[in-house]
Amino acid sequence: MKRLLLLLAFLALPVAAAPSPDQVNLDLGTPPVVIVKHGLAQRASRLVRFYDAGIIGLGYDGMVRLRDASRLNLAQRQIAEKLIDSENPDRNSLIYALAEGHGGQYWEPAVRAAQVQRWKAQWHAGWWIEDAQGQWSIKR
């Protein structure tokens, strides 16, 4: 009987709601966040020429994607792919570091949603962006 009462008391406890993107501070300055942001900032200048040319775009999930490689020779394509292969893991690392800074991986979905919103807002007009259906358009 005592176990049943304990179980019922436990089940009656309020369930904590998952954090929302509005609760996320994307400007945390924890060492892991600072390190990842530094790497992203250093790579940004090399990615800009591919963004400007429409070769690389921002995926619906906040990751960068090779959008149109038709104008690239093999060496240029390898450079673009190497940049993407470095950029996306760092973008995920930033999300994980921010989630840890908020208290743990429980925060990861909210942090991811907030960070993707920020990346989309920071995306320049004239650069390509993908919608949730996989369609590319130029950001206005």
Score class of each variant (00 low, 15 high):
133 Q>Y: 01
10 F>P: 00
92 N>C: 02
117 Q>T: 14
124 H>V: 12
6 L>Y: 09
109 P>V: 07
44 A>T: 13
119 W>N: 11
40 L>H: 00
45 S>Q: 15
30 T>V: 05
35 I>T: 13
100 E>K: 13
2 K>I: 09
16 A>H: 02
94 L>F: 01
10 F>K: 06
85 D>M: 07
68 D>S: 07
17 A>N: 03
20 S>Q: 06
66 L>H: 06
57 G>E: 11
52 D>M: 01
1 M>F: 05
125 A>F: 00
7 L>G: 11
67 R>L: 14
115 Q>C: 00
127 W>P: 00
28 L>V: 14
7 L>P: 01
132 A>K: 07
83 L>E: 13
113 A>T: 14
62 G>Y: 02
111 V>G: 03
67 R>I: 08
131 D>E: 04
102 H>Q: 12
110 A>Y: 10
94 L>A: 09
131 D>Y: 05
62 G>N: 06
76 Q>R: 10
29 G>Y: 01
39 G>R: 13
71 R>M: 11
123 W>Y: 09
18 A>R: 04
138 I>P: 01
21 P>M: 05
134 G>T: 12
130 E>Y: 08
58 L>S: 01
109 P>F: 08
72 L>T: 01
139 K>R: 08
95 I>V: 12
117 Q>M: 10
69 A>F: 00
92 N>E: 08
70 S>Y: 04
52 D>H: 03
60 Y>A: 14
129 I>V: 15
82 K>N: 15
1 M>D: 07
50 F>K: 08
96 Y>W: 03
69 A>G: 13
92 N>R: 08
98 L>P: 11
122 Q>A: 14
124 H>T: 12
86 S>L: 14
13 L>Y: 01
75 A>P: 00
12 A>G: 03
93 S>D: 09
121 A>G: 13
11 L>K: 02
129 I>Q: 12
62 G>M: 08
127 W>I: 05
113 A>L: 07
106 Y>D: 15
58 L>D: 03
107 W>C: 05
25 N>D: 15
41 A>I: 13
125 A>K: 05
136 W>Y: 09
136 W>V: 08
8 L>A: 15
93 S>K: 10
71 R>I: 09
44 A>E: 15
2 K>G: 13
56 I>C: 06
105 Q>V: 14
129 I>W: 00
126 G>Y: 02
104 G>W: 08
88 N>E: 01
68 D>G: 03
108 E>I: 11
15 V>Q: 05
28 L>P: 07
6 L>K: 10
5 L>D: 11
2 K>V: 14
72 L>Q: 00
62 G>R: 01
68 D>K: 01
101 G>Y: 07
112 R>I: 02
58 L>M: 07
105 Q>E: 12
67 R>F: 04
